[in-house]
Design a protein around this nucleic acid. Structure first.
Length: 562
RNA sequence: UGCCCUGUAGUGUAAUUGGCAACACGUCUGUCUCUGGAUCAGAAGACUCUAGGUUCGAUUCCUAGCGGGGCAACCA
């Protein structure tokens, strides 16, 4: 019974893998790879691919390589290489051996291209990009062959070598595969294999001035690395015939890597395009790639998301081939679930109003004991100072409360978490504005937490901090970055940025229990009754900064809406 | 007027390969509680895109439609 509980059904890729294993394909070897292009930071969508690629390897006793797909030097940079490595490791994965680079294979790739030319399967085209594009035709109509398509092998060889030697300017020539200009698959209409770029490459420097295209580099790199299952997203589906064609040109034995496509991850209320993320950073809509509002891995990390929550998310979302848009609430649920087990509970008042306990001795301070996490006894307890003057949340008091309001109101009792039961006797208001300046209460000395008298039933428990002991902390309250589920859904003339939420960040100063003065960057807390918070990397001793990861579920807020 | 992929509760993923459509999130009730958190119990919600066909029986197989997505970078 318990076994079936754990036996998750296989996704379609695992089915293929197990089938291959049963058939003894590739001698039972499982080899995958995660192939990011180092032209941006990786995001939660990449996390899906990472979990798949590394997960398959892990579960089937295989290996997963990390391979940077760095065939386009003009958009790529080492800055991204380091960040990508860090993010993968933070998620809990480790690639086999050293990180690899498509650029490691440039010599081999070039040799194979030469082989293609000699076989009469590739030619140097001197048409302009525009002409090539025009000749390619449209999906519903066949293309036209280039005038250079049938030149002699020797001439192609000579020209290609001279391309490599830097004799021609950028864009003047390309090497194209000779396949079929009438193919219904556009990618088979003599795809470009090499282009001239006199560009500095972040690894190979100025060695090359011809660079392979994705289609020539990717499958061949897979082949070199002995990849068995080359997993990628749906948009590469139409490339697969070309992927296979390229491999067939250079492979001799039975072994071939197999490309399998799955649907990428989409999340509502967010964008998943590196281009758009870059724009948000460059135009100052967010502070950086690791801004806690970004769906990047580093952004989520800074926001307070745990690797476990992201892994669970990817697992829950599943792998299939149909387009999907996942609800953000699922991600939030999973981070709450994880943080509920791990986060230490503390009391922080974000919108304070003063409470004075009229019958509590002036100058007296009691140290109250508080559980650090009711879900985990092993993390123990701590002491919090209690005194005559306290801060509570302004929202926890209502002078004229509706029926279902259980918190503090005149004549009503409420429990102070880890403290006493108090009763409101009245309020002091600003004569001009009517704003409540101070709430007056009496406390019942017999109801201290842990004492017999504390067992009395009280409708609500609220959190508090001692006014004289409170620590001022900066709290960054984050909301979703976009106001609408689909940020790309805009009316004529507007662009996706018009859907940005102007209130996605609100910074406040809150009153925290004094022990938080020692909070360290990265630590995660639950502000009781409020939400989960993570100490920001900008935080320093003397200036503690918290990022709100996610709010707690709030039934009262729901009642208010009704 | 082409090719490829894909249609199962609001969302996502299943259905042991042809046997009463399940799970998670979300929604709604209620229970419990020194967090209106967590927990626990329960409910609603799906003509499985449509129409034919094969079959005792179809989400599953076949045919034809329809809807959604992708493909026309010297990007990946």
């Amino acid at each position: 019974m318990e076994n079936t509980e754990n036996a998750r059904t296989l996704n379609f890729i695992e089915e293929i893998v197990e089938e291959d294993l049963r058939n003894g394909k590739n001698d039972g070897r499982i080899q995958t790879r995660f192939p990011p292009e180092p032209n941006g930071y990786i995001h939660i969508g990449h996390a899906k691919a990472i979990c798949l690629d590394f997960g398959i390897a892990r579960n089937y006793n295989g290996k997963c390589n990390l391979r940077f797909d760095d065939t386009n030097p003009v958009t790529e940079d080492v800055e991204y290489v380091d960040a990508i490595k860090e993010d993968i490791q933070w998620l809990g994965f480790q690639w086999a051996g050293e990180a690899r680079y498509a650029s490691d294979y440039f010599d081999q790739l070039f040799e194979w291209a030469l082989l293609l030319v000699r076989k009469g399967k590739a030619y140097v085209d001197e048409c302009s990009a525009e002409e090539i594009s025009a000749h390619r035709g449209v999906p519903t109509q066949a293309g036209k062959e280039s005038a250079y398509r049938n030149r002699p092998v020797e001439e192609n060889l000579d020209l290609f070598m001279r391309m490599k030697n830097g004799e021609f300017p950028d864009g003047s020539k390309v090497l194209r595969a000779k396949i079929d200009m009438t193919s219904p698959n556009m990618h088979m209409r003599d795809p470009v294999l090499y282009r001239i770029k006199h560009a500095h490459h972040h690894r190979t420097g100025d060695k090359w001035c011809v660079y392979p295209m994705y289609d020539w580099a990717h499958g061949q790199s897979d082949y070199i690395e002995g990849i068995t299952h080359s997993l990628c997203t749906l948009e590469f589906e139409v490339h697969r015939p070309l992927y296979d064609w390229c491999l067939d040109q250079i492979a001799d034995g039975d072994y071939r890597p197999r490309q399998i496509e799955f649907a990428r991850l989409n999340l509502n209320y967010t964008i998943m395009s590196k281009r758009k993320m870059l724009q948000l950073v460059n135009e100052g809509y967010v502070s950086s790639w690791d801004d806690p509002r970004m769906p990047t891995i580093c952004g989520l990390r800074r926001r307070g998301y745990t690797p476990e929550s992201i892994l669970n998310f990817v697992e829950t979302v599943g792998i299939a081939k149909r387009e999907n848009i996942i609800e953000f609430t699922l991600l939030e649920h999973l981070v709450r679930e994880d943080l509920n087990k791990k986060a230490l509970r503390v009391m922080v008042v974000s919108n304070p109003v003063k409470v004075v306990l009229e019958n509590y001795p002036e100058g007296q301070v009691e140290m109250m004991e508080a559980e650090n996490n009711p879900e985990d006894e092993s993390v123990g307890t701590r002491k919090i100072p209690f005194s005559r003057e306290l801060f509570i949340e302004r929202d926890d008091f209502l002078e004229d409360p509706p029926k279902k309001f259980f918190r503090l109101s005149p004549g009503n009792e409420v429990r102070l978490k880890n403290g006493y039961i108090i009763k409101c006797t009245g309020v002091d208001k600003d004569e001009q504005t009517g704003e409540i300046r101070q709430i007056n209460c009496t406390y019942d000395p017999t109801t201290r937490s842990g004492l017999e008298g504390a067992n009395r039933k009280v409708k609500a428990t609220i959190h508090w901090v001692s006014a004289n002991h409170a620590l001022d902390v900066e709290v960054r309250l984050y909301e979703r970055l976009f106001m609408v589920p689909d940020p790309d859904d805009v009316e004529e003339g507007k662009d996706w940025k018009s859907n940005l939420n102007p209130d996605s960040l609100k910074v406040i100063v809150a009153k925290a229990e004094p022990g938080l003065a020692n909070a360290k960057p990265g630590e995660k807390y639950q502000f009781q009754r409020t939400g989960y918070f993570c100490v920001d990397t900008d935080s320093k001793p003397g200036k503690i900064i918290f990022n709100r990861t996610v709010t707690l579920k709030d039934d009262w807020a729901k009642i208010l809406k009704q």
